[in-house]
């Protein structure tokens, strides 16, 4: 049980660190697109580790003590993880596309290939 708790704490630590970096990046970056970088990548990665801590705990208790109710926690967390990874990336794409269509220019950009594309 001790090893299990240690692993969970390490995962929670890593997850909190990356979620914090994501929140910090939101304030620090200059424009919408760079902020999305911080908001999607860091929070997805951080949340993956937070969920993994839950999975480790519940799978461990399920395996050691045979508590059947823990399996619900374990499997639902895995499904939440998959849903999070797919929807977070898709959502970021939708926000970025909407921002560019409504005329938000990337700050300090070197090139903008999308500029010349006509909206269909």
């Amino acid at each position: 049980m001790d090893a299990l708790n240690t692993v969970s704490y390490v995962f929670i630590g890593i997850g909190l660190f990356f979620n914090f970096i994501g929140a910090f990046g939101l304030h620090r970056f200059p424009d919408m697109y760079t902020r999305l970088h911080a908001a999607t990548k860091c929070t997805t990665f951080g949340s993956i580790f937070l969920i993994m801590a839950v999975i480790v705990q519940s799978a461990g208790i399920w395996a050691i003590e045979g508590t059947l109710s823990q399996s619900v926690m374990c499997i639902h967390s895995v499904l939440a993880l998959v849903a999070l990874m797919v929807t977070n990336a898709t959502g970021a794409h939708a926000i970025a596309r909407a921002a560019h269509r409504s005329g938000e220019k990337p700050a300090r950009a070197v090139v903008d290939d999308l500029e010349s594309k006509a909206n269909d």
């Binding site: 970096i21 990046g25 620090r28 860091c42 990665f45 700050a107 300090r108 950009a109 070197v110």
Partner: peptide, 22 residues
């Protein structure tokens, strides 16, 4: 993905960016 996150964390802390849309 792990590499990406360390990279973004580095850019958040130092603020060194050079963005573009390609």
């Amino acid at each position: 993905m792990a590499k990406a996150n360390i990279d973004v964390a580095y850019r958040v802390i130092t603020g060194r960016i050079n963005p573009a849309i390609v």
